[in-house]
């Protein structure tokens, strides 16, 4: 999933495929059903909780037209709805996440 987000941020052709046929693009990547659904829905809160690296997620949020404040709020909403961050280092100071 993070390779897809990296490519979306770096490769104009991948972004074009995202616009033209996002679900087709997703078949190029090894994704779980939950990952695929979160990507299609642009569910930034769930992607954050899944452990997507923030340096990648922030750009995907922008691609999905999230303003910065909305992006920050979406991560907080994700914590409230889906629980602590499952993997990675991009957690909160109150320990709501993986170590």
């Amino acid at each position: 999933m993070q390779k897809l987000l990296y490519n979306l941020n770096r490769d104009a052709q991948v972004r074009q495929r995202c616009e033209d046929d996002f679900e087709g693009l997703l078949t190029d990547y090894d994704l779980t059903d939950e990952e695929r659904e979160a990507l299609v829905d642009g569910n930034i809160g769930l992607l954050y909780v899944m452990g997507v690296n923030g340096q990648l997620l922030m750009h995907y949020a922008a691609l999905r037209q999230y303003a910065w404040d909305e992006y920050i709020a979406a991560m907080g909403d994700g914590l409230a709805r889906y629980g602590p961050v499952r993997h990675g280092l991009y957690t909160t100071t109150d320990g709501q996440g993986a170590v």
């Binding site: 340096q55 997620l57 922030m58 920050i72 991560m75 914590l79 991009y90 909160t92 100071t93």
Partner: peptide, 10 residues
């Protein structure tokens, strides 16, 4: 700093 987390700005 806590960039790209809900604590961004702390």
């Amino acid at each position: 700093h806590w960039p790209a987390t809900p604590d961004s700005g702390k």
